[in-house]
Simulated assay, not measured.
Amino acid sequence: MSFQSYIDNIKAKTGLSPDDFRKRAEDKGFLADGVLKPSTKATMVTDWLKAEYDLGHGHAMAIYATFKGKTS
């Protein structure tokens, strides 16, 4: 599955875009001014996305990758 397919599937399942997740992650304290905090580990983000949005590990990692700057 391509990266864009992961993002499209996440949007279809949750109704949220990567930008929406970025805003929510900032509210959770994982990001500061849109940038991952050095103390934020991938597991922290993926556990949150799995618990609150019922995402699988690969889909949660795709959102985490967008926080790190991946766009395609």
Rank of each mutant, 00 (worst) to 15 (best):
E52Q: 09
G69H: 06
A32D: 09
K50P: 02
K28N: 05
M61F: 12
K13Y: 08
V45I: 14
R22H: 12
L31F: 10
K68N: 07
H59W: 05
E26N: 06
S2T: 15
A65P: 03
F3R: 10
A51D: 13
K68A: 12
S17L: 13
A62W: 01
K50M: 14
Q4P: 01
I63H: 01
A60N: 08
M61I: 12
N9F: 10
M44A: 10
P18M: 08
D8P: 01
K50Y: 11
A62R: 00
K41E: 15
W48D: 04
K13F: 12
K13C: 02
K37W: 11
A60R: 03
P18L: 04
N9R: 14
T40L: 06
D27R: 09
E52F: 10
T43M: 08
I63S: 02
D20A: 11
L31W: 07
T40Q: 03
V35C: 02
V45L: 05
M61D: 08
D8Q: 14
T40M: 05
R24W: 03
T66V: 09
K41D: 11
H59D: 15
P38G: 03
S2G: 07
G69C: 02
L49S: 00
D8V: 05
H57D: 15
K68T: 14
V35Y: 00
E52W: 06
H57M: 11
K70L: 14
D47R: 11
K37I: 09
K23Y: 10
I10M: 02
K68M: 14
D27W: 03
S17F: 13
G15F: 13
K68G: 03
F67M: 15
S2M: 09
A42M: 15
P18D: 11
A12H: 05
A51G: 02
K70A: 07
M1V: 10
N9P: 01
E26Y: 11
Q4N: 10
L16N: 06
S5P: 00
G15P: 04
Q4V: 09
F67H: 01
N9G: 05
A51T: 09
D47Q: 11
H57P: 01
K11D: 03
F30N: 04
T46K: 08
K13T: 08
Y6H: 15
S39W: 04
A65I: 04
L31R: 06
K13R: 14
M1S: 11
I10W: 12
K37P: 02
K41R: 14
I10G: 02
V35G: 01
T46Y: 11
G15V: 05
R24T: 04
